[in-house]
Design a protein around this nucleic acid. Structure first.
Lengths: 204, 204
DNA sequence: CGGATACTTGAACGATCTCACAACTTGAAT
DNA sequence: ATTCAAGTTGTGAGATCGTTCAAGTATCCG
């Protein structure tokens, strides 16, 4: 059995690694994913090669292919990892107090333009490649589903939910691509507006 | 003089090619850009190489480098081209009747999920790489500026403008990544909501 | 007609990458 | 202790890529 046989689905994590060897293997796998994200952060998704990742992780090239047979597997795993990170943060917001949810989302967005810019850029890049591989669609959708869940706790209007998801995503892009001033109050205002009462002149 | 010397800025288009040779050259350049977009559409931005583009265009590899010395130049030109296309369509909406503007924007978004899906995906991919190359920022921002202009003709509230831009972008992503049903009425509803009156509880 | 200029081609160099493979090491299990 | 699986390494074959270059062709200008 090889390591790649265990690297299948990205939810995984359900195994019980009583075996010390496998425990070390899982640690290695995590290291490699971390290194991959570092490379994507530094050089973009195009800079991800078995060699660059291996060098970043301080291992040999062959070891990288041992855990992730193909480069695609590596990128998939990286996308899964970063997606999990974001969705877990959103879910933490959902579990928190009501009045902090929208503000928490706003802070998350603002953070994408500040310290977490490179990381957010990496996620966007990986998500974009996901659009080209049907198998990755669900992974890329996870973040949006989290926002949907958050929005659903604030309103019953499905249109308001859709608007919040869209505007959150658009704001993320704005602070990422444009140099939109990343002010939490400002972002919060736009978010709140998107969820506001439906426009009186339109009910299609 | 080489061809690349004339391939500088992307607005260009101001020359008067009385010279038949240069006219042919300009035609070639356009063909190569078209081929580049075809490659991005088919294989993604990562699939763009001088060789793949040349094959797609039915020319030799050297000719591709003759017009675009470096691969970056080629990608820049391709992004410029597709960005121009979108912005011109938006500007056409701005010049049209008021009541058609928001609906026209909605149709543009819906189209991104339908027939123009591949093309929209290509633009998103190119825009994303633009975030990593400062020189391309202005080009990638063009589309957003177009939407800003459109929104400015519909409201004076800067927050409403920001919300519309963000929600338009987010909806584009939604129909691109998710399998959100591409219904013009639905999209129009969300757009209108985002521009709606500010939420009464918040004025930061 | 005769340069000068723009376009076009084919070949090639050097660099890099993916992926495969066999050998070696470490830890677990019986 | 022995046996076997998991982890790890070095090497390299095969392919692709970016870019350069010298040589060739078409077109314009005088």
């Amino acid at each position: 059995m090889t390591a790649v046989d265990r690297a299948g689905g990205c939810p995984g994590e359900g195994n019980r690694p009583v075996d010390g060897r496998r425990a070390r293997g899982d640690r290695r796998r995590a290291e490699i994913i971390e290194a991959t994200l570092a490379v994507v952060t530094r050089d973009g998704a195009a800079g991800v090669t078995h060699r660059s990742v291996a060098q970043q992780a301080g291992i040999t090239t062959s070891l990288s292919t041992y855990y992730f047979a193909t480069l695609d597997d590596l990128l998939v795993a990286a996308l899964c990892s970063v997606a999990d990170e974001y969705t877990s943060r959103i879910r933490r917001l959902v579990d928190g107090p009501v009045q902090d949810r929208l503000r928490g989302l706003a802070e998350l967005i603002v953070e994408s333009g500040g310290p977490g810019r490179q990381r957010a850029l990496a996620e966007r890049e990986l998500s974009t490649m996901a659009a080209r591989r049907p198998a990755l669609g669900p992974v890329a959708r996870h973040w949006r589903e989290g926002v949907v869940e958050l929005a659903s706790t604030l309103t019953d209007d499905p249109q308001a939910v859709a608007a919040l998801v869209a505007v959150a995503d658009g704001l993320c892009t704005a602070v990422l691509i444009d140099d939109v001033p990343a002010d939490t109050g400002y972002v919060l205002g736009v978010l709140a507006r998107a969820m506001g009462t439906p426009h009186p002149d339109r009910h299609p």
